[in-house]
Simulated assay, not measured.
Amino acid sequence: MSPYCLIFEKACHLLVELEHNAYWAVRKLNFHMQAAWEKRLLQLNELDKFRLQTYENAKIYKEKTKRWHNKKIMECHFELGQYVLLFNSRLKLFPGKLKSRWSRPFCITKIFFHGAVELENESSRNQFKVNA
């Protein structure tokens, strides 16, 4: 026997008893190993079906949302010389509570084939391109 076991004899026995009780409980719970394995496999299959169904539902939701959004978009046709308002999408924080995100009317000077337009400021004659 080691000197530790001689001094702390009850502690050694207590550890062995605890280890034996833990082993007994694990053995009792896992007595039907095949049934537990089949049940776990069934749970994993159900979880996989649930995950696939969730992906399918998310796909359907995205398609419906896209159709609804595309239906709400109005198609704009611009012509040369037409006056338009410019939407400032970068204006996130503004000092005035009721400050508008739309800027003064600009005149369209050129229309590009890919959808961009060239606008001209009437007062300063500055020209710049924006996405239509």
Rank of each mutant, 00 (worst) to 15 (best):
83 Y>H: 11
50 F>W: 08
45 N>Y: 00
13 H>C: 11
36 A>Y: 04
67 R>N: 05
29 L>E: 05
55 Y>P: 01
29 L>N: 04
123 S>M: 10
39 K>S: 00
13 H>T: 06
74 M>D: 14
30 N>Q: 13
9 E>F: 14
88 N>F: 03
132 A>P: 04
3 P>V: 14
58 A>C: 06
44 L>C: 13
74 M>Y: 13
102 W>L: 12
41 L>H: 05
90 R>I: 07
127 Q>K: 15
94 F>D: 11
93 L>C: 08
53 Q>L: 06
68 W>I: 10
116 A>L: 06
99 K>P: 06
99 K>G: 14
131 N>T: 08
65 T>W: 11
3 P>C: 13
108 I>W: 00
132 A>Q: 08
15 L>P: 01
16 V>R: 11
124 S>R: 13
80 L>H: 00
10 K>Y: 04
7 I>A: 11
131 N>V: 14
84 V>S: 02
36 A>S: 13
119 L>Y: 01
123 S>Q: 11
19 E>H: 07
56 E>P: 00
49 K>I: 01
55 Y>E: 05
68 W>N: 15
1 M>Y: 15
11 A>K: 04
72 K>C: 12
26 V>D: 06
92 K>W: 14
83 Y>A: 08
43 Q>Y: 02
26 V>W: 05
65 T>F: 11
38 E>P: 03
117 V>G: 00
54 T>G: 15
106 F>H: 00
18 L>P: 00
17 E>G: 03
86 L>R: 01
21 N>E: 04
8 F>E: 06
15 L>M: 13
98 L>D: 13
100 S>T: 11
125 R>H: 08
52 L>V: 12
82 Q>M: 11
24 W>G: 01
26 V>M: 04
126 N>G: 12
93 L>H: 12
67 R>I: 07
24 W>C: 10
104 R>S: 13
79 E>D: 05
47 L>N: 02
112 F>W: 15
47 L>G: 13
119 L>K: 03
75 E>L: 09
26 V>E: 07
11 A>C: 01
60 I>W: 07
6 L>F: 07
70 N>C: 11
127 Q>R: 15
14 L>E: 09
43 Q>T: 02
17 E>A: 10
104 R>G: 06
